[in-house]
């Protein structure tokens, strides 16, 4: 009994590891994408230009109101009808990146809005222009404040990357499902999958809680 378990584990580990690598790749790529787009939303929202702020608000709410799975289906199955054919990995990354851009936007916005108005006035009083104030004074301070929610988003994103399995991205959850379907060792396979996610997310969770301690309370 125990020997079959060990044999199964040894047999499944390489395949699941391959999946874990893809999970990390999807997560990191989506992280970059969602950070850039989210920052864009946040800058639009806080620009003081009504058209941009409203557009950002509408897009962010639109994205937040649609399940990640549906966004993934849209990117993977609907875009080809407009001649945009993406690989599963690319579609998964873009879908997840867009979905999380909304949450990243909120993290950045709360950071930007937390900066004291006196900071902007001080920057203005030495002759800085709008974009320089954003770049040199507001964003460096806002990033610190945004780090804890940003880290939390990252943990959520790692787990939600499993949803890309629905559009055939061969990440950890997908590989688990495939092995389970062919070996019927559901208990062993999915337990290993769960442990795989935990091994990835627990260090992250620990890291985020340290960030919170460092930046959460103090300004």
């Amino acid at each position: 009994m125990a020997s079959t378990l060990i044999k199964d584990v040894i047999e499944f580990t390489p395949i699941l590891l391959e999946g874990a690598v893809v999970t990390v790749q999807v997560t990191l790529a989506s992280l970059v994408l969602s950070t850039l787009i989210g920052l864009g939303w946040a800058l639009m929202r806080t620009s003081g230009i009504p058209v941009l702020a409203t557009a950002s608000k509408i897009f962010v709410n639109l994205i937040r109101g649609i399940p990640i799975l549906v966004i993934l289906f849209y990117v993977y199955f609907v875009l080809p009808e407009f001649g945009i054919q993406l690989s599963a990995f690319l579609a998964g990354t873009i879908g997840l990146g867009i979905a999380y851009s909304a949450y990243m936007a909120e993290a950045f916005r709360s950071g930007i809005e937390a900066i004291d108005a006196g900071q902007v006035e001080a920057a203005q009083s030495i002759g800085m222009r709008k974009w320089m104030i954003m770049r040199r004074v507001i964003l460096p301070q806002a990033f610190k404040i945004s780090l804890p929610p940003y880290g939390n988003n990252l943990v959520m994103m790692l787990k939600d990357s499993s949803q890309t399995s629905a559009i055939t991205v061969a990440e950890l959850a997908m590989q688990s499902k495939l092995i389970a379907a062919s070996s019927f060792k559901n208990m062993t396979v999915f337990s290993m999958g769960a442990i795989g996610y935990l091994l990835l997310s627990i260090p992250l969770i620990y890291f985020v809680s340290r960030l919170e301690k460092k930046f959460g309370k103090s300004k």
């Binding site: 004291d116 006196g118 900071q119 006035e121 001080a122 920057a123 203005q124 009083s125 030495i126 002759g127 800085m128 222009r129 004074v137 460096p140 301070q141 610190k144 300004k219």
Partner: peptide, 19 residues
């Protein structure tokens, strides 16, 4: 911006850049 570089300001609450 030109005027502000010629007329500086000191605030009640200092407003130094903390970072």
């Amino acid at each position: 911006h030109w005027i502000r570089t010629h007329v500086s300001m000191v605030f009640q609450r200092f407003n130094l850049f903390p970072h």
